[in-house]
Simulated scan of single mutants.
Amino acid sequence: MNPAFLPRALTAGLFAVVAALVPAGAQTLDKVSFGTNWVAEAEHGGFFQAVADGTYRKYGLDVTITPGGPNDNNRMLLIAGKLDFFMSANSLQSFDAVANEVPLVAIAAMFQKDPQVLLFHPESKVTKLEDLKPLTLLVSKEGMTSYFQWLKSEYGFSESKVKPYTFNPQPFIANKQSAMQGYVTSEPFAVQKAAGFKPGVILLADHGFNTYSTLIETRRELIDKKPDLVQRFVDASIIGWYNYLYGDNAPANAMIKKLNPEMTDELLAYSVSKMKEYGIVDSGDSLRNGIGAMTDARMASFFDKMVRAGVVRSNIDYQKAYTLRFVNKAVGLDLRPKN
């Protein structure tokens, strides 16, 4: 979720550490720590599901999830060796690690599509991405250095139409000739609640912005020393995502709400429904290779687009940013509904 619509009154419990219960019996579990990049929400649901329903335990793992937040940097804890795995936002972070010689590697992509959207008013009669060009565009600082550069290079968008997005929807709500960035799983819901109308959305992933999202990252050192542990964590996380999307996700949602008391059942249900509707988690290559799928061709395509957009340097060895060693094994395909 974009930080826009999460109340800032975060309780201490929000940043509590979540630990899997050690099962009865003599089984020895490998302790694993995993950090997310934001507070607990449906967009992290598969990981919480794997804790809450015992999937990680079945794979011999005692997993602790440390939620992120506005004042936390779990990625730095991964780099420092304080966490074993981290949930990164998109492939650009992986390319950046290579550019800065940080030994992190993406090992699975839980979202086949980035949830980034541009919201617009129904009155603006937008039917395709190019129709947004005449509108005032509310874009964050981070958006300006990433997806907006792609909009410029691929679609000819102009920075002259951009105004800063401050994670406040009111300027968008007040101006019918504007468009606002957001995540398909959250901001449309928040705007509808606040303003009483259903905004239209353009999902950038459906128009060529083909980054992976919600990737699992780890240190190269852990891959080299404990490949079996890495594989078990990836496989169990994949199973967690299938169960969260298609099974009984009440255990994960209860955990999310305990960590994030501002989260509601209504928003959780909305987010899950949009992840399914837009194929955020399970579409494209994952239909054949399983959730978490990645391909060399997809990585090369996105890298080339970001080079053309001036976002990344052409001379970095982007293939060091990821490995296909732990994915594309069709894990969990039997858990997808047949109809």
Rank of each mutant, 00 (worst) to 15 (best):
N2V: 13
A4G: 14
F5G: 13
R8T: 13
L21P: 04
T28V: 14
L29T: 07
L29E: 10
K31P: 09
G35Q: 02
A40Q: 03
E41Q: 13
A42G: 14
A42M: 07
E43P: 00
R57E: 15
K58Y: 00
Y59P: 00
D62Y: 08
T66I: 14
P70Q: 12
N71M: 09
D72G: 06
L77M: 13
L78A: 07
A89Y: 11
F95Y: 15
V98F: 06
L104G: 04
A106V: 03
I107K: 01
M110D: 00
F111D: 02
F111E: 02
P115T: 10
V117D: 07
V117K: 02
L119V: 08
L119Q: 12
P122N: 08
E123W: 03
V126E: 00
T127L: 06
K128H: 11
L129Y: 06
P134V: 09
L135H: 07
K141D: 14
T145E: 14
Y147F: 15
K152F: 09
E154N: 11
F157S: 06
S160W: 04
Q170S: 12
Q170K: 15
A190P: 01
S213Y: 05
S213I: 00
E221A: 13
D224E: 15
D228R: 06
L229C: 01
V234C: 04
S237V: 05
Y246C: 02
A250K: 15
P261T: 05
E262L: 09
L268I: 15
K274P: 01
Y278I: 09
G279N: 06
A300V: 09
K305E: 14
V312L: 07
V312N: 04
T323I: 01
L324I: 08
F326W: 07
K329A: 10
K329D: 02
D334K: 11
R336K: 14
